[in-house]
């Protein structure tokens, strides 16, 4: 029996006791003095009370009648009421034991089961939440580590890029210097070549003018003869 059912049993027992004792004064209150005396007179053998020989019986009867003037006991009920009240209580208690307690027990059991299930679900949810929290914390930790790694890699990459840019810039500067030097040298060579060409043009032009002025018929013939002699002497 569960603690709840024990509490219910104790509650019903207390109610029964209160009903038992509370019912007694109520029953007594309902019996009037006249009724009491009527019942005693009706139940008494009045013939046996007559005469001096029955003086003691008469005194006893009078004392009995005088009891009708006494107030009922506020605590102890009459026995018949105790019996009826006890029987009613027993019946009620038995009925409650037979029908009420199982229903209440089932309801309580269902409620207990539901609460237990809820507690289990809550525990499971709590466990899941803890697991999720742990997972999130782990992921957060991993993310932090990954972020730190990415930052470190980015910093290293930035350092490499900076070094590469610096190297390229230095290389480009060196190439530009070399190209500038080469261009300067080429320009100088071109200037020298142009100057030579100009000098050659001037010299050859002067020579051509001299040659043309001297290329008379005799000179032409001499040139032809010289050519023929040169060809003839080629195989010599």
């Amino acid at each position: 029996m569960t603690a709840t059912m024990k509490r219910l049993a104790r509650t019903f027992s207390l109610v029964g006791v209160v009903v038992l004792f509370a019912a007694t004064p109520v029953g007594a209150v309902g019996e009037t003095i006249g009724t009491c005396m009527f019942e005693k007179i009706e139940n008494a053998d009045l013939a046996a009370l007559k005469g001096p020989a029955n003086k003691d019986a008469l005194l006893s009867f009078e004392a009995d009648l005088e009891k009708c003037f006494e107030a009922p006991n506020p605590i102890l009920p009459e026995w018949d009421e105790v019996i009826w009240g006890g029987a009613a209580f027993a019946i009620l208690f038995a009925f409650m034991w037979w029908k009420g307690f199982p229903a209440v027990s089932r309801a309580m059991q269902a409620r207990s089961d539901r609460i237990a299930a809820d507690l289990g679900a809550a525990e499971q949810a709590k466990n899941q939440a803890n697991a999720v929290l742990a997972d999130h914390q782990e992921q957060l930790g991993g993310a932090k580590a990954q972020a730190a790694q990415i930052i470190e890699e980015a910093r290293a990459q930035a350092d490499l890029v900076a070094a590469d840019i610096t190297a390229r810039a230095n290389e480009e500067v060196a190439q530009m210097r070399a190209k500038a030097a080469a261009d300067l040298e080429a320009a100088r060579m071109q200037a020298v070549s142009d100057l030579r060409g100009t000098v050659a043009d001037i010299a050859v032009g002067a020579a051509e003018r001299v040659i043309k002025s001297n290329l008379d018929a005799d000179t032409q013939r001499a040139l032809v003869d010289a050519y023929i002699d040169e060809v003839a002497s080629t195989n010599a």
Binding site: A200, L215, A226, Y227
Partner: peptide
Amino acid sequence: GGLVTEIGDDVIDGSVRFRQAQLRETF
């Protein structure tokens, strides 16, 4: 002045113009 002889693909250039060109290259 001078002569330029072509025999097939062979050329024997003994002209004044050729001499001038040589002179220009020399300069």
